[in-house]
Amino acid sequence: MPFISRSVDGAIDGVFEQPQEGRAEEFLPIGDPDVIAFENAALMVSSVSARQFRLMLRRAGLVDAVKAWVAQQDGETQDAFEYSGTFVKDSPMMVAGFAAMGFGQQQVDDFFTAAAQL
């Protein structure tokens, strides 16, 4: 059974395999929906480095399509694509670009999760 701690508002703020000194804890069974939701939220990737993003574009075969899309955008978008050190999943440029590539939200999440592993 995992040990969990909760914030003042009652939300889970930690899941541990062992008791943690100085934390009020409770036990929840493995597979508890609250524990699963907390762990899944922790796994969600919200940003990746430019290197990770570009390597993932290459692996997905999207480099040329994305560069063509970027070339049709305003100067700020072009500069952001070229010079950003980090790509943030929910930034306006990312949202617009992934929509133009026909990606759904799950595909975007999967793309960022895979990129974070590179």
Rank of each mutant, 00 (worst) to 15 (best):
A99P: 00
S49N: 10
M93F: 12
A96Q: 07
E76K: 02
G14W: 02
V66L: 05
M44A: 12
A37T: 07
T86G: 02
Q72S: 12
E26V: 14
V45T: 08
R54G: 07
L43P: 01
L118Y: 03
S91A: 12
A60K: 14
D79Y: 12
E82M: 07
A100C: 04
A24D: 15
A65N: 08
R6A: 13
Q73C: 14
T113V: 10
P19S: 09
Q117I: 12
V35F: 03
G102T: 10
P19Q: 15
M44D: 12
P33A: 13
A96K: 04
V66A: 11
Q117C: 08
W69T: 04
S84A: 15
L28T: 04
D64W: 00
F53M: 01
D90E: 15
F16H: 12
P2I: 10
Q73I: 06
D9M: 08
F111W: 05
F111L: 11
F98Y: 05
A60E: 13
Q72V: 03
G61M: 05
L57H: 08
F3C: 00
F81H: 15
E21Y: 12
L43G: 04
Q18I: 13
D13T: 04
S5E: 15
V70A: 08
M93T: 10
Q18C: 06
A99I: 04
L57S: 06
E25A: 11
A80P: 00
I36V: 15
Q117A: 13
I36F: 07
S91V: 01
F112K: 00
G31H: 05
P92M: 06
D64P: 00
R51P: 02
A68L: 06
D90H: 09
V66P: 01
A41P: 01
T113F: 15
F38Q: 06
V70I: 15
D109K: 14
L118T: 02
A68Y: 05
F111C: 13
D9L: 10
M44F: 10
D64N: 11
V63F: 02
R54I: 06
K89D: 02
F81I: 02
V108D: 00
F112G: 05
Q105V: 14
F81G: 03
V15T: 05
G14S: 03
S49L: 08
D90I: 03
D34C: 08
P33S: 11
E39T: 14
E76W: 10
F87C: 02
R51C: 09
V48Q: 01
A115L: 03
P19E: 15
V66C: 09
Y83L: 12
M56N: 13
F112H: 06
Q105Y: 11
D64L: 14
A71V: 04
L55A: 12
L57K: 02
S84V: 02
R23T: 06
T77S: 14
S47M: 10
L28A: 09
V15H: 01
Q52W: 07
G14E: 11
G97V: 03
G31W: 01
P2T: 08
Q18A: 12
F27L: 15
